[in-house]
């Protein structure tokens, strides 16, 4: 069935193979090993060249499965990216919230107000002309009507209505709001009233002859029992005065410390302080602040200098001890160690 040529060819190949096997099994140097090394030298070279050419493809690793999974991997990476972006955004907003709470804590601590923090969740539409907001704390949290609402900058307003879990706060800038104010430097009192505009309040001194200058700060005078307004809360700064001293209608325009368009974290004063905190809650004036800082730095520098002296003395002592107690090395080491520890601030 096979042609003659085929049979011959097969027979030659089988014989040749067997010959190779026999030759190789015989071992030692022979024609086969030299042929093999010659051939492998050539194929080796070819292999290296091919590997270089194909390396861009092969170095991509498992390229077939990579190619098939690209869509999946892209989706995975995108999801991961979204997750990370969200985390970054949230950390920024968390930081802003933490800062607002810190500020609130500073004011509450300075004035010894007991505050309940809350967050503004809704704002009345501008076309109602009413400056009212909803906060996310209500009667279940201990909020009652006519409680004072503050934030880290100063007076925000007072609680108008209370539901179980939310309350309505009427802001100080509302045209229906009025609060007793005291000038921080001269102790003069008067009435601060909202105008319905977010950046101005009216201040009318009770004593028309009282001295008032632009830049004076106002704090709340305080109501009986601390409601609706607890005492000592910063209200704002006098920016304009109309009329002269002695005139009956002498009204000052006051810029509130609180920016009502940026309200987020507020604090409801659930218990006013036992004593009027006077002016202690007001933010320090700028030039004073500068001086304070300067002074603080000087003091710090002085302290450091003293510390250095003390350290030097202590080290000297330790060295002396070392010198004296050469005989008892162990003890000296212990002493040294102890004095080093003591020196570490």
């Amino acid at each position: 069935m096979l042609s003659r040529r085929t049979r011959i060819a097969l027979a030659v190949l089988v014989v040749a193979s067997l010959t190779f096997v026999i030759l190789d099994l015989r071992g030692g140097e022979g024609p086969l090993s030299s042929a093999r090394s010659a051939v492998s030298a050539v194929t080796g070279l070819l292999q290296r060249g091919a590997a270089t050419v194909f390396s861009p493809v092969t170095s991509a690793g498992d390229w077939w499965s990579t190619w098939r999974n690209q869509a999946g991997q892209i989706a995975e990476l995108r999801a991961e990216n979204r997750e990370l972006e969200r985390a970054v955004r949230e950390s920024a907003s968390d930081r802003a919230r933490a800062d607002a709470l810190d500020e609130l804590l500073r004011v509450a601590t300075a004035g010894r107000y007991r505050v309940l923090p809350a967050e503004v969740i809704a704002v009345g539409p501008a076309q109602d002309y009413a400056w009212t907001v909803t906060i996310d704390a209500g009667s279940l949290d201990g909020i009652e009507r006519e409680m004072t609402v503050i934030n880290g900058q100063g007076l925000v307003g007072r609680v108008l209505k209370v539901n179980q879990t939310t309350s309505t706060v009427v802001l100080l800038v509302d045209a229906s709001a009025a609060v007793g104010g005291r000038v921080a430097t001269t102790e003069e009192i008067g009435i601060v009233a909202g105008t319905g505009r977010q950046d101005s309040l009216d201040f009318q001194l009770l004593d028309p002859l009282a001295e008032l200058v632009i830049g004076d700060s106002l704090v709340t005078f305080g109501s009986r029992g601390g409601r609706p307004y607890a005492p000592g809360i910063p209200i704002g700064e006098v920016v304009d005065i109309t009329g002269t001293a002695g005139q009956l209608t002498r009204v000052a325009t006051v810029r509130p410390f609180v920016d009502v368009s940026q309200l987020s974290i507020v604090g409801v004063v659930v218990r006013p302080p036992r004593e009027d905190p006077r002016d202690s809650v007001l933010p320090p004036r700028e030039e004073q602040q500068g001086q304070d800082e300067q002074q603080g730095q000087d003091e710090q520098a002085g302290d450091e200098a003293n510390d250095d002296d003390a350290n030097d003395d202590a080290n000297d002592d330790a060295n002396n001890e070392d010198a004296n107690d050469d005989a008892n090395n162990e003890e000296a080491n212990v002493d040294d160690g102890a004095s080093t520890e003591a020196n570490t601030p």
């Binding site: 809704a122 704002v123 539409p125 501008a126 076309q127 368009s261």
Partner: peptide, 17 residues
Amino acid sequence: IQVTLLSRLGLPGATPD
């Protein structure tokens, strides 16, 4: 949406009604 979102955008003039 109006009181929790639109009025908090701080747009000039009215709140989008």
